[in-house]
Computed example of a mutant assay.
Amino acid sequence: MWFRVEPGRGVPIYVQLMEQIRRAVASGVLAPGEQLPSVRELALQLSINPNTVSRAYQELEHEGIIYTLRGRGTFVAASSHTLTDRERLRRLNEAVEKLFVEAYQLRCTPAEVLAAVKKKVAGMGGKDTQKEEIEHDDE
């Protein structure tokens, strides 16, 4: 598989794995129901401790992004639609906060941040997104 870790990056390896899996799920690279490598397999591939992979998988399972079937493997969850609106918005606000901290540290201007967000939203390509863009263009 395509996972990679950078031990000297200053970010825990399990967090790096989580970020990559979240990104792959959000972008559709990993589809609902798709099987992830086993803990042992991924640990060997990346030359890391199996406990590190296990921790990443456990955290992602707690978030509802993946699920494990004992004896069968670990899979991408169907959807996070089971979250309450309040929880979805809480997580979104957390992500936005992280974005702003990162943008501040990179000394990005508000215009640069907005342009990057708009580009990502446009790339989501869902009908709801296109409809919202049309509605906003009319304003």
Rank of each mutant, 00 (worst) to 15 (best):
R72F: 14
L114K: 03
D85K: 08
R72N: 12
S54N: 11
G71P: 05
I66L: 14
E87S: 06
F100D: 07
L83F: 09
N93A: 12
K98H: 11
A103H: 01
V113L: 04
T68A: 15
L46N: 02
L106G: 02
L42C: 15
N93V: 10
E61K: 13
N51I: 04
Y57S: 02
L42H: 03
R88N: 07
R90T: 11
T82Q: 01
V76M: 12
V53T: 03
V53W: 02
T68G: 09
Q45D: 14
Q105T: 07
I48L: 06
Q105H: 05
S80P: 07
V53K: 00
R72I: 12
F100W: 10
A116L: 15
E41N: 08
R88P: 04
L83I: 09
A116D: 15
G64V: 02
E94T: 15
E97L: 07
A115E: 06
R86I: 08
L92W: 10
T84N: 03
R86F: 06
E59T: 05
R86T: 07
T82M: 04
A43E: 06
P50I: 08
T82C: 05
R88Y: 12
A115Y: 02
S79M: 15
R86A: 08
E59V: 15
A56S: 06
E61A: 14
T82D: 09
E41I: 10
N49C: 13
Y104K: 13
E41G: 05
T52F: 00
I66M: 08
N93R: 12
G71K: 07
R70K: 05
F75K: 04
G64T: 07
A115N: 13
H62K: 12
V76P: 04
N49A: 15
A115R: 08
E61H: 10
R70Q: 00
E61M: 15
L89S: 08
N49M: 13
E63G: 01
T82V: 01
E41T: 10
R55K: 15
N51E: 11
F100Q: 09
A111D: 06
L44Q: 05
N49W: 10
Y104D: 08
S79K: 12
E97R: 12
L69E: 14
L99D: 05
L46H: 03
E87Y: 01
L106Y: 06
V113M: 03
H62D: 05
R107M: 03
A111V: 02
A43F: 01
E112T: 02
L69C: 08
A77I: 09
E102D: 04
L114Q: 01
L42V: 09
T52W: 00
I48P: 02
G73F: 04
R55L: 02
T84D: 10
A95R: 14
N93S: 11
T52H: 01
G71I: 07
E61V: 12
R86G: 03
Q58P: 00
V113Q: 03
A116R: 15
R40W: 07
I65D: 11
E102T: 03
V113R: 07
L89H: 07
V96C: 10
A78Q: 15
R88E: 10
L89T: 10
F75M: 14
S79Y: 05
R55P: 00
R90P: 05
A95K: 13
G73H: 12
V76H: 11
